[in-house]
């Protein structure tokens, strides 16, 4: 197990390097000169501009800039924005909010998704099952942003059940965004759970469990549920990373001051350092979530042996 874990962590290094390099290259290629942009309408003072460039290493070749950036990351220095704010401040401000939002979405997926999925699976072929299946497809088909602003309008503005925006990032105001964020994944969780339950219900070992004289409820809980939930847990774990990176649209609609909004702003303002730093962190979260899922898998399924 320890060996496996360390091997996995070693494997993460090239992925991390590759991803940051990729994103760095893309940001590097962004049009416009952020330095000249700083001067706004004022005439550009070339001397000052060169000074700024040197300060931000913008006069170095691409690969050197990348390596300097990596070095910074290693010592926890994410650099500073052009307006002079340390990027770490932005990160410290937005990450907690998005983590909160993502976890709320994850809990919704977990509770609602698994419950509905199990009920549908047990009632395979019945009205409830086909309705759920159809509805889940519809949810997948409607773009998140439409769900988002229609939900915001109906529940936030017309009915007034929730705050329409979530700038304060309180649990109550994040509830609506969390539901929207969870939306598509929720549909996937339901379908996955249902398929898994249906498959396991007709498994040979479940029949054998019944043949032993176990009661129906015991067979369901001990032999069907546990087996069915393994792929669901895997999906949920991997989804945490996706939720955090995918929150851009939801945060944009609900004006949540989170990672997505900060990133979107930074992209629009060509704030390379901020974009690269945030994306790097997101990728780290994503990769670690996946590692955790793999390890969890080994705990849940004794057949998996990581030597």
């Amino acid at each position: 197990m320890l060996r496996y874990t360390s091997r996995r962590i070693l494997q993460m290094i090239p992925v991390l390097l590759g991803t940051t390099l990729l994103i760095y290259a893309m940001v590097f290629a962004m049009p416009g000169d952020p330095v000249t942009a700083l001067f706004g309408d004022k005439p550009v003072n070339e001397n000052v501009a060169d000074q700024i460039r040197a300060e931000y290493n913008l006069d170095e070749p691409f690969i050197v800039q990348y390596l300097l950036f990596l070095k910074g990351i290693f010592v926890g220095d994410f650099g500073i924005t052009f307006s002079g704010r340390p990027v770490i401040d932005i990160i410290a401000r937005v990450f907690p909010t998005t983590i909160k939002l993502a976890f709320m979405a994850l809990i919704i997926e977990m509770v609602l998704g698994v419950a509905v999925g199990v009920m549908a699976g047990i009632r395979k072929g019945k009205l409830f099952d086909s309705t759920v299946l159809m509805l889940s497809l519809v949810v997948i088909a409607i773009p998140t942003f439409v769900l988002g602003f229609v939900g915001q309008f109906v529940f936030g503005i017309e009915l007034g059940w929730f705050p329409a925006t979530a700038r304060d990032a309180s649990i109550g105001s994040l509830l609506m965004p969390a539901v929207v964020l969870a939306g598509v994944s929720l549909a996937y969780v339901i379908r996955l759970t249902r398929t898994s339950i249906v498959e396991n219900l007709s498994a040979d070992h479940v029949r054998t469990a019944k043949a032993k004289g176990l009661s129906g409820s015991r067979v369901t809980t001990v032999h069907v549920l546990r087996n069915s939930l393994i792929p669901v847990v895997t999906f949920l774990g991997a989804d945490l990373g996706t939720l955090m990176g995918g929150a851009i649209v939801t945060e944009y609609i609900f004006a949540v001051d989170g990672v997505g909004s900060a990133l979107y702003d930074a992209i629009l303002r060509s704030e390379g350092t901020t974009v690269v730093s945030i994306v790097t962190l997101l990728v780290v979260v994503y990769i670690f979530a996946n590692l955790l899922v793999d390890l969890l898998y080994a705990v849940l399924d004794p057949r998996i042996r990581y030597a």
């Binding site: 040979d204 043949a211 546990r226 004794p302």
Partner: peptide, 29 residues
Amino acid sequence: RGSSIGLVPQDPMSNLNPLWRVGFQIKET
């Protein structure tokens, strides 16, 4: 089932729950 009629199923590979210890599955019976 179990107490009056016991069943030894056909395919040994698929008839035990892979997630539980063998002892547990017999104890359950």
